[in-house]
C-alpha cells in the first residue's frame, strides 16, 4: 500500500517538475514573443501615425487648390450647376 503510494508520489514529483519546467520555458518564450510583438505593434502604430500626418499634409485643401490651379482647367462651382437627383426625372 505504502509502496504504491510512494511510487505514485515519486511519479507525481517527476511528472510535475517536468511539467513545471516545460510551462516555465514556454511562458518565457511567450513573454519574449509578446514583448517583440508589442514592440512591433508600437512601431507600426508610430509608422501609421507618421504616414497619416504625411497623408493629411498631402491632402491639404491649400495644396490641392494650388495643384488644381496649375494643372486643371476647373472653375468655381456656380449655384445653377447644382441639381437634385429627383429633378433629373425629365432627362
Amino acid at each position: 500500500m505504502f509502496r504504491v503510494m510512494n511510487c505514485f508520489a515519486v511519479l507525481t514529483i517527476i511528472f510535475s517538475s517536468f511539467f513545471l519546467y516545460h510551462i516555465k520555458s514556454e511562458a518565457r518564450r511567450d513573454a519574449a514573443l509578446l514583448v517583440t510583438l508589442r514592440e512591433d505593434i508600437r512601431k507600426e502604430q508610430e509608422m501609421i501615425n507618421v504616414l497619416k500626418a504625411e497623408w493629411s499634409h498631402l491632402d491639404q485643401p491649400r495644396r490641392l487648390q494650388d495643384l488644381a490651379g496649375r494643372y486643371l482647367d476647373l472653375r468655381l462651382l456656380d449655384a445653377h450647376q447644382i441639381i437634385a437627383l429627383k429633378d433629373l426625372n425629365e432627362f
Partner: peptide, 27 residues
C-alpha cells in the same frame, strides 16, 4: 504540492503585469 500546483496554474493564467507596465510607459 498543492501550493506548487496552484502557483503553476495561476502563473499560466495570470496576465504578466510587468510586461504591461513596460508597454504602458512606452505608450
Amino acid at each position: 504540492y498543492a501550493v506548487v500546483g496552484f502557483r503553476l496554474i495561476s502563473l499560466v493564467n495570470m496576465p504578466n503585469n510587468f510586461e504591461n507596465k513596460v508597454a504602458g510607459i512606452h505608450d
